[in-house]
Design a protein around this nucleic acid. Structure first.
Length: 562
RNA sequence: UGUCUUAUGGUGUAAUGGUAGCACUGCAGUUUCUGGAUCUGCCUGUCUAGGUUCGAAUCCUAGUAAGACAACCA
């Protein structure tokens, strides 16, 4: 008899439930197809990662496909620069699209369909100004009024739309509008604009070919339809667009197939901003050092900061998908990073704020190779050797002239362990005229080398260290949250006034162990007792630069706050 | 004086009419050659009022609060 333990059933989120129900109902011949539809007008951020995980994840989970489709219907804002970075970021996250499409692939098809709308009396050319059209639109609580051009003849509409298309009409002079209902309680039904004229900018793919460009509401749903998308997943703010999404498709669909739009909550993170506009401002005004500044919530920023794709997945998995507009604690993202890096990062020694420690009874000129484990959480990571000598650097924080009772580190008369080396006892120290500590003295016990029986002696504190003569100088960049307040977007002040002045501290006089000489940009490490760090893209073997991804939890720091 | 949507511990999220659970945070302890990690325990919750039901976080009604919608942006 097998005693099979029932697999713990992970509960489905509401979108998975919809998909499973659709599958059960046999909709769309049992096909599952999604798409990730970024506009190539900016860099992807962690909010997009949430959408990416859902779009690609649902497809993978239910044996469907997910395409990447660039929603490139506004040449004024879009650029190939973004097309490339978006692809790179998606791949870095570990996803593979079935096809790459562009909304611009459908320009002709969309245009043909627009002609059909005109011929059916469902669209008309309006030649009022943008201001007039806006005014006539009414407000959410007041109905709009109809355009005087609303009822012109089909022939006239056809002729004018052709002129628009041919570039004979100046930008802004005319638009094509769907003829729906100016009194609808849904603003989007008040004769939405389908096409506008843009002659001032070339499109990044079609050049100067088109003079008219479709608007989102018309282009997006129809592109979904043309592609065979079954589940069109987007964020909550598109909820009010859904009836229009459905309306357009109802006007021309010829079979049972139809894409279904479902909205989920977007990702909001504490202590940061996620809006493209604000991020662009931070970059353009030099408040951060570019889109990939490790403090930015962009995918490239997180990558450079040292977040792994796994930790991002894990984070997104933890926050879930609902219809509740939440504000997620960035602490959870940091937790996900620690959880992942704890299992994977090689432990190394780095001293960020060095002070010299001299082992007075250790022979001058002698060196020993000490074996140390690369990762106690992963035996397969193996061991390596590090160099021990008479003169070491330790952390300035790890010494106190007069220490409180709970201080387990170096203080005169107290024993500490040097990680992977010897137990030592502090015998003295030296200060300069300015009363600044410059040297610490200690004696080692030769019988306590790691691995020897005496080394199992109980010692409260263990310190990390590097050998003065064998360590490498390095620059270390310490990052903290970008903003001082939890929710900068909800604050009454300008978000730029809320930036955390201490979000970046650059330490230039650090020493790291010699093995880091061979490290490559983006390699992850744990600097023992300090935190998780990775090699910055600025780093070279002549001049090492590390970024702090996230600190280790520090219960001593907490203790001190009491 | 509109339409749509949402409301479960400090935060996020489950429970699909039947014991309100999980994760993060916090606190206490265990353990440790990282004051890390591990392990254990604890604190804290169904917006309000009615109704339906043997039974409601869940269904209904009404409130309250929050969000979205009035770009020739997506």
């Amino acid at each position: 008899m097998e005693n099979k333990e029932e697999a713990p059933k992970r509960s489905l989120n509401f979108i998975e439930s919809f998909v499973e129900q659709d599958l059960k109902d046999g909709k769309n011949d049992g096909r599952i197809q999604t798409r990730f539809p970024p506009e190539p007008n900016g860099y992807l951020h962690i909010g997009h990662a949430k959408a990416i995980c859902l779009d690609f994840g649902i497809a993978a989970q239910y044996g469907g496909i997910c395409n990447l489709r660039f929603d490139d219907t506004n040449p004024v804002k879009e650029d190939v620069e973004y097309v490339d970075s978006i692809q790179e970021d998606i791949q870095w996250l570990g996803y593979h699209w079935k096809n790459i499409y562009y909304a611009s692939d459908y320009f002709q098809q969309l245009w043909n369909l627009a002609i059909q709308f005109i011929k059916q009396g469902k669209a008309y050319v309006d030649e009022q100004s943008a201001e007039t059209i806006a005014k006539q639109k009414g407000t959410p609580t007041m109905p709009g009024i109809e355009s005087p051009f609303r009822n012109r003849s089909i022939d006239e509409n056809l002729e004018l739309f052709n002129k628009m298309t041919a570039g004979e009409i100046p930008e802004g002079a005319m638009v094509l509008r769907a003829k729906i209902d100016m009194a609808s309680s849904n603003m989007h039904f008040r004769d939405p604009i389908m096409y506008r004229i843009i002659t001032s900018h070339p499109h990044h793919r079609t050049g100067w070919k088109w003079k008219v460009y479709p608007m989102y509401d018309y282009a997006h749903g129809q592109s979904d339809y043309f592609e065979g998308v079954t589940h069109s997943l987007c964020t909550l703010e598109f909820e009010v667009h859904r009836p229009l999404y459905d309306w357009f498709i109802d006007q021309f669909k010829t079979s049972d197939y139809r894409p279904r739009q479902t909205e989920f909550n977007r990702l909001n993170l504490t202590y940061t901003v996620m809006s493209k506009r604000k991020m662009l401002q931070l970059v353009q005004e030099g408040l951060v050092n570019g889109w990939d500044d490790p403090r930015m919530p962009t995918i490239c920023g997180l990558r450079r900061r040292g977040y792994s794709p796994e930790s991002i997945h894990s984070f997104i998995d933890k926050i879930g998908y609902t219809k509740f507009e939440a504000l997620n604690d960035i602490g959870l993202l940091e937790h996900a990073a620690r959880e992942n890096l704890n299992k994977t990062a090689t432990r190394v020694n780095a001293v960020l704020d060095p002070v010299k420690l001299i082992i007075t009874n250790y022979p001058e000129g002698k060196v020993e190779l000490m074996e140390t484990v690369n990762n106690p959480e992963d035996e397969s990571a193996g061991t390596r050797e590090i160099v021990f000598s008479r003169e070491l650097y330790i952390e300035r924080d790890d010494f106190m002239e007069e220490a409180p009772k709970k201080y387990f580190r170096m203080t005169p008369g107290q024993e500490v362990r040097l990680k992977s080396a010897y137990i030592i006892k502090c015998t003295g120290f030296k200060k300069d005229e300015a009363n600044k500590l410059i040297e610490i003295y200690a004696e080692y016990d030769p019988q306590t080398k790691s691995g020897m029986p005496e080394s199992s002696r109980k010692v409260k504190g263990t310190l990390h260290w590097v050998s003065v003569a064998h360590s490498l100088p390095a620059e270390v960049r310490l990052y903290d949250r970008l903003f001082k307040v939890e929710n900068p977007s909800a604050d009454e002040h300008d978000f730029r006034d809320l930036l955390n002045p201490d979000s970046l501290k650059i330490l230039t006089k650090c020493y790291v162990e010699h093995s880091l000489l061979n490290s490559k940009p983006l390699d992850h490490f744990q600097f023992q007792r300090i935190g998780y760090f990775n090699v910055d893209t600025d780093s070279t073997s002549e001049s090492l630069v590390f970024n702090r991804t996230v600190s280790l939890k520090d219960s001593w720091a907490k203790e001190q706050l009491k």
